[in-house]
Amino acid sequence: MSVLPKQAVKAPSPPPARPAPPGHYLEVKNLSVHYGETQALFEVSFGTEKNTVLALIGPSGCGKSTLIKAVNRILELTPGARIDGDVLIEDESIFGQKVDLISLRQRVGMVFQRPNPFPKSIYDNVAYGLRIHGVKDRSTVDDVVEWALKHSALWDEVKDRLRTSALELSGGQQQRLCIARALAVQPDVLLMDEPCSALDPIATGKIEELIMSLKQDYTILVVTHNMQQAARVSDHTALMWLGKLIEHNRTEEVFTNPKEKITEDYITGRSG
């Protein structure tokens, strides 16, 4: 697989003016979430570095989706959800007073479990994020749409029908469109909530390839219940169990040399 000539597309980020921050690029600190009376997350803490893929694995209902939804604060849309603890991106809390929810969500893009394109044209789907943020001049929007679609490996399949409805695409194409839509607003972090759970194996393969290529430019958190997928795409893996973080390590370590009994049982299929 040839990697996209990203450097030509995205200018290499200028070297940081200040020295690399002391903490992790993205850090979750003692994060707890309650839905009404029930607690879904218990004091979860971990960190992840820039341009890596972190896979969150675990059985259904273990809180992994809740966790990543907290990272761009979309969890707050769920009535009754209460968040304690903190999430830092480049040492800045996303829950800080000054943080603007709109900018945060722009910076931390999200791809959902089921492809959820808007019932608009392919073009309008990708352009949506730009337009709502006030970028409306045609040539820029055109450029970004094309760039995002290429970046999500969908361009060649749709370039001749950008005006047709996004709902006419196949499930896998729709999911890549959703990725393109998220990329178009130029995020730093990409959250993916089981992006392949509704897709067939071929489409899944394409998305996985895409994830691996995207990590050059983005910091990715991907939730999956598919351990093979975690093993294939991620640099680090974290196992969640009943709302708690059980083990977090380099992916090879987790899969070849798990420290915890639960992890071992889970990855060998004895539980979960």
């Binding site: 849309l77 969500r105 959820n116 019932p119 949506y128 998220a182 607003v185």
Partner: peptide, 27 residues
């Protein structure tokens, strides 16, 4: 209107009114 479309728009940083006017009401 499925909640997932709303989430998608919020996830891109749309304000509440933008979500309503550009996604929810048209549907």
């Amino acid at each position: 209107v499925p909640p997932s479309t709303r989430e998608a728009a919020y996830g891109l940083g749309a304000t509440r009114w933008q979500v309503i006017s550009t996604v929810v009401l048209p549907q």
